[in-house]
């Protein structure tokens, strides 16, 4: 991780996880792991968030909620799928009300494995996400400056 030009704020949503990953995401914020030392803050408002942390898999009921939250986030944004359910559906894959991983709906940038994902790996995933966020930001800036110069 290079130096960060901004502090990424995360938005956490429990898609249909068993709570295991959710409490581990929360545990990341607390004194033992303390992601605030990276400038990462858990926000409740999608309009303030840069990183979308989703736990659990997609189902009929929450698919619109996930899309809605993602669309409300300003660009550039990164999606982190935490836990095996968010990646593929995991142990619930065969359930009738589980459509699969988050990548069915959103473009996922980082997958964090584990059932439940450990706080260390969640932090690792989010730190990786900040690097991707940085790249996306640079690309956005470049394309904007090209538009300004009239080359596109």
């Amino acid at each position: 991780m290079s130096s960060l030009s901004k502090s990424p704020w995360i938005l956490h949503y429990d898609a249909s996880s068993c709570n295991g990953c959710d409490i581990e995401v929360l545990a990341c914020l607390t004194p033992m792991y303390d992601v605030e030392r990276f400038g990462i803050i858990n926000t409740g408002n999608p309009k303030h968030a840069d990183i979308f942390v989703v736990t659990g898999s997609v189902n009929e009921q929450n698919i619109d909620v996930i899309k809605n939250l993602y669309n409300q986030m300003p660009d550039p944004k990164v999606v982190v799928a935490v836990g095996i359910c968010a990646a593929t559906g995991g142990i619930f894959r065969e359930c009738y009300n589980v459509m699969g991983g988050i990548d069915q709906v959103l473009p996922v940038d980082v997958y964090v494995p584990g059932c439940a994902a450990r706080p260390e790996s969640i932090i690792d995933g989010i730190v990786k996400a900040t690097t991707i966020l940085e790249e996306k930001y640079k690309k956005m800036k470049e394309s904007k400056s090209l538009v300004k110069k009239g080359r596109v």
Partner: peptide
């Protein structure tokens, strides 16, 4: 409610 429903009771068949 129903945002986290997975259908675990049915999974017993599999």
């Amino acid at each position: 409610i129903g945002f986290v429903h997975r259908g675990l009771e049915k999974l017993v068949e599999k």
